[in-house]
Write a protein that binds this DNA or RNA. Structure first.
Length: 550
RNA sequence: GCGCCCGUAGCUCAAUGGAUAGAGCAUCAGCCUUCUAAGCUGAGGGUUACUGGUUCGAGUCCAGUCGGGCGUACCA
């Protein structure tokens, strides 16, 4: 519809002899007095025409042909407001009923592939609440891409080598030795969480004290990794987060057929471009050549790569795997990491505009009004698993995405634990359950069956404001899918679904449905079915359930 | 110091550069003998941290100031 209006306005401009050489906007005003759509065309072009915007707007309207509008008016400083006819709106609602689960799906990504990398926590401990935010954000972004037709790969990138894993293995070993009766002081620098003890206990059950003399850390590391990873995956599964692919950073260290590892390949390629320096015993990415203050270490003086090198190599594998779009989701603590990776990829000739970075700000949890600082190492972090246990997966997911990713999320644990109407997920789900209940009752009393009853034209009889507003809200769904994806911001979907639920509750309050006369009743039931469909489609994108009764 | 994010109602947060800055919670006043009151209607509550600038128009963009968060590692 917007596209249609845009074209119509352009034609009207041309008919007036104005070259439509500037862009103007068509939006859906929040104030319903301003119609369904509002265009600022006259405001944009008035200056170059040397005229008053309101006068120009009037002149444009004269040349405008928009049969779907029952009223077009000039308002305010010169906006052109379009009021769609109820006919037009209800006809479009018919389309929703026909398209069903496919309503709102776009074609932008048809035939294209996308990879979304998210969670990507190393297996050093159970997932914390903070990690959950990025997990849900990434999952919803993947759903949005899917809704636009992309073939989506959900990937988890992790490292089971390196310093942190070594400390983890040592931590398990110390706890194990304590279980074996040795009197050891557990170092403060090591992982303090109870889960370390649990892992040590598993080893103790299996081996008794047979590993006391084993200084080799491998067995401790493997036990820890296996147990922790399975716990991470279980937690994610509870939130409906299922990755298609787990990418182990370690593979980037292994030489392929040509005898060169991906990491080494990056060094070689950057060297040939003149961006590798060697001093202080380390190998550096000479970002000073790009105007940065300091060079960045790629290979430490110990001979091990720093995290930047495999990160670059990892991204190259995404290009090698030929993804059209790549989305990386990570927390604000990685903010300084990606510019270097992008710079390196640029230098090496990769199209970095295929990469999108979605950074979510931190989650602070408040308990009894006190803010907790979290650290996996100290073991005092709030566990995502506990949260899911308390508030359920739907509320957990919704809480994480109901705020803009750029804002700090204040997760009031006490509030979230409340099973009350404070919880916004209820408001959305209640609208869905209400419709389901209504349809069950309608089937009993009037025999209406949304599957077999396709007498859609009766909806043309719906003329009251709450019906028309609800109908129009339903038409906005595809727009918000697109916008949410463009901004990588599923929060927009939450906002949209909230207003949709609100419109439905109002309609329900004002209009008797089953009790109305037969034709009107059927029409209102159909409008309800369409609303249920849009709610369902939206819930699917957000990954929350659509309960049939509450 | 430098980089990124944030600063909006008592609280938590919205507002693709647009018109009278909106929701929820909290407060107050109404609506169930009638399809789910987990709902609806209404009221109060604001110098959008501050100062300049850009333009037809700024909460939004730019510069600066103040305040908070995260980085600023040869950790990831």
């Amino acid at each position: 519809m917007k596209d249609f209006l845009y074209n119509a306005l352009e034609k009207a401009l041309e008919a007036k002899g104005i070259e439509p050489n500037k862009t103007f906007q068509i939006e859906t005003p929040t104030n319903k007095n301003f119609g369904n759509y509002s265009a600022n065309t006259a405001l944009i072009f008035a200056k170059s025409c040397d005229t008053n915007p309101r006068i120009l707007a009037e002149e444009i309207i004269q040349k405008l042909e928009v049969p779907q509008a029952e009223k077009i008016e000039v308002a305010g400083p010169g906006f052109i407001n379009f009021f769609l006819s109820s006919n037009c709106i209800m006809e479009s609602v018919e389309k929703i009923l026909k398209e069903g689960d496919h309503y709102g799906k776009g074609t932008e990504g048809m035939g294209k592939t996308a990879i979304v990398e998210y969670v990507s926590a190393n297996p050093t401990g159970p997932l914390t609440i903070g990690r959950g935010r990025g997990g849900v954000l990434g999952d919803c972004i993947a759903n949005l891409l899917d809704a636009q037709g992309y073939s989506v790969t959900r990937e988890y990138y992790y490292n089971d080598a390196g310093k942190q894993m070594k400390i983890l293995a040592e931590s398990v070993r110390f706890r194990y030795l304590q279980l074996c009766g040795q009197d050891i002081v557990f170092p403060e620098s090591h992982y303090q969480g109870d889960y370390i003890r649990d892992i040590a206990e598993v080893l103790f059950m299996e081996h008794s004290s047979g590993l006391v003399e084993t200084a080799e850390l491998e067995i401790f590391k493997e036990a820890a990794e296996t147990i922790i990873f399975s716990s991470i995956r279980k937690t994610l599964e509870r939130l409906g987060i299922l990755h298609d692919s787990f990418f182990n950073e370690h593979t980037l260290y292994i030489a392929s057929n040509d005898g060169v590892s991906p990491n080494q390949g990056v060094i070689d390629a950057l060297r040939s471009k003149g961006f590798i320096g060697e001093y202080d015993g380390a190998t550096w990415f000479m970002t000073t050549k790009l105007g940065q203050e300091k060079d960045k270490v790629l290979i430490k003086s110990s001979g091990e790569p720093s995290y930047r090198l495999p990160d670059i190599a990892y991204h190259i594998t995404k290009f090698d795997r030929n993804f059209d779009r790549m989305v990386n989701v990570f927390g604000a603590d990685h903010i300084d990491e990606y510019p270097d990776v992008l710079e390196a990829l640029n230098i090496l000739g990769y199209e970095t505009d295929r990469i999108d970075i979605a950074i979510n700000q931190f989650v602070t949890t408040t308990v009894d009004g006190q803010t907790l600082k979290m650290s996996t190492r100290k073991g005092n972090a709030d566990l995502l698993d506990d949260l899911i246990e308390d508030v359920g997966p739907d509320a957990t997911r919704l809480f994480f995405i109901m705020r803009s990713k750029d804002s700090h999320l204040n997760f009031d644990v006490e509030l979230a634990k409340k099973q009350s109407k404070d919880n916004p997920v209820f408001y959305l789900q209640y609208a869905h359950a209400r419709i389901c209940s209504l349809l069950r009752m309608a089937k009993q009393e009037t025999g209406f069956d949304p599957e077999s009853d396709t007498d859609y034209h009766v909806m043309q009889q719906l003329l009251s404001p709450s019906e028309i507003q609800l109908g129009f809200a339903l038409l906005e769904y595809p727009h918000w899918i697109k916008t949410s994806l463009r901004l990588l911001e599923p929060q927009k979907m939450v906002e949209y679904l909230h207003t949709l639920a609100e419109q439905y509750h109002r309609f329900y309050q004002e209009c008797p449905i089953i009790k109305a006369e037969p034709e009107i009743s059927k029409a209102r039931l159909m409008l309800s079915v369409a609303t249920r469909q849009v709610l369902r489609n939206g819930f699917k994108v957000l990954g929350i359930s659509a309960p049939e009764s509450m």
